[in-house]
Design a protein around this nucleic acid. Sequence first.
DNA 1: AACGAAACCTACCGATCTACAGGTAATCGA
DNA 2: TCGATTACCTGTAGATCGGTAGGTTTCGTT
Lengths: 193, 193
Amino acid sequence: MPYGDGMSARARSEERRAEIVRAALEVIAERGYRGASLAAVAERVGLTQQGLLHHFPTKEALLVAVLEERDQWDAVPDTRWRVDLLTSLVEYNAMRPAIIQTFSALLGESVTEGHPAREYFTERYTRVRESMAAVLRTEYGDRLPNGLTPQRTAPLLVAVMDGLQYQWLLDPESVDMPGAFRDFLRLLGEGRD
Amino acid sequence: MPYGDGMSARARSEERRAEIVRAALEVIAERGYRGASLAAVAERVGLTQQGLLHHFPTKEALLVAVLEERDQWDAVPDTRWRVDLLTSLVEYNAMRPAIIQTFSALLGESVTEGHPAREYFTERYTRVRESMAAVLRTEYGDRLPNGLTPQRTAPLLVAVMDGLQYQWLLDPESVDMPGAFRDFLRLLGEGRD
DNA sequence: AACGAAACCTACCGATCTACAGGTAATCGA
DNA sequence: TCGATTACCTGTAGATCGGTAGGTTTCGTT
């Protein structure tokens, strides 16, 4: 029998990598990417820093795995999304501050020169804006207030989601993130039939 | 005659400090606060790292000076602001990517644990939200679309400004920051008389 | 002209960081 | 059962970091 459990070697290895990625998410939330040391991540899964490097050859490789995890995470339906599902997403996010903090910290860092997540976020935003435009079109057609088009509204929708996250992370008591987001959506729904 | 110029010792010292703060703004924009080394800032003003520490005893003291500079910067009128002045501000910002990048990077880092700018941003947002609520009330009274109050709209306004900055910094070609901001304001102006 | 302070500098310390090299024990496939 | 692979470990290199100690030059003041 392999090890004490019923896992194959390959499955165990992937399990280990997933553990490490989870730990990395936590540490990045706490200290950012630049502030996250491999040693801190390793310690959290009971490894030495060099042991961790066996699974991810460089720090950047670990970051890539973290970003891929996120891609997989919100690669949900896409166009099939509805606006009320966005509300649910924001409500769900409000219950998971650690994840939000990780990617808010990464987004902030990513605008600096040569940051390894910069390209990721740039492309992600392009994708998300298109996706949101599709959602808006599905929900409201082209009848948005003030002659706004879904194309032009999408950046606003994304900006509201991100911007609210920072305010909420810094002061959750003072900012009702889901409530504010619903307010914004109601603003869009005004000119509807 | 003191030195080659007509400055007093005190004025020269303040001039030097201002130089250093300017350099720090640049370096933080490029590498974030954690990634900004004192040596890099010092080099930019022709000092050694230890020479810089003569003017600012610790790295954190330098950061405080950077944040104070910003406070002074946007401690403009306040309630006297009008919505169209906000548009001008966004247009002005669109011409100064370095400054925006500095504070977007700092904001991102500030959500991490124990970051020296965390308290600053938390308090700043409280202040700015109140300020924006006052502006909205002055401009639109309480007649905002969908029964929204200025109090509840202010976080959205701030979120839009911040969120657009990230999208714009990452991909200025694809995001018309001032245009999008005007779109948002038009959304608010809809239910007006 | 003498004194004191400001504005630097060189030298250095201890900590921390990513990464490489190489060893070892456990495990798996043939 | 044996050879290879996996999953670690210790040791260490090489760089960089913020900060301290202490000297020296430059300058304003008296």
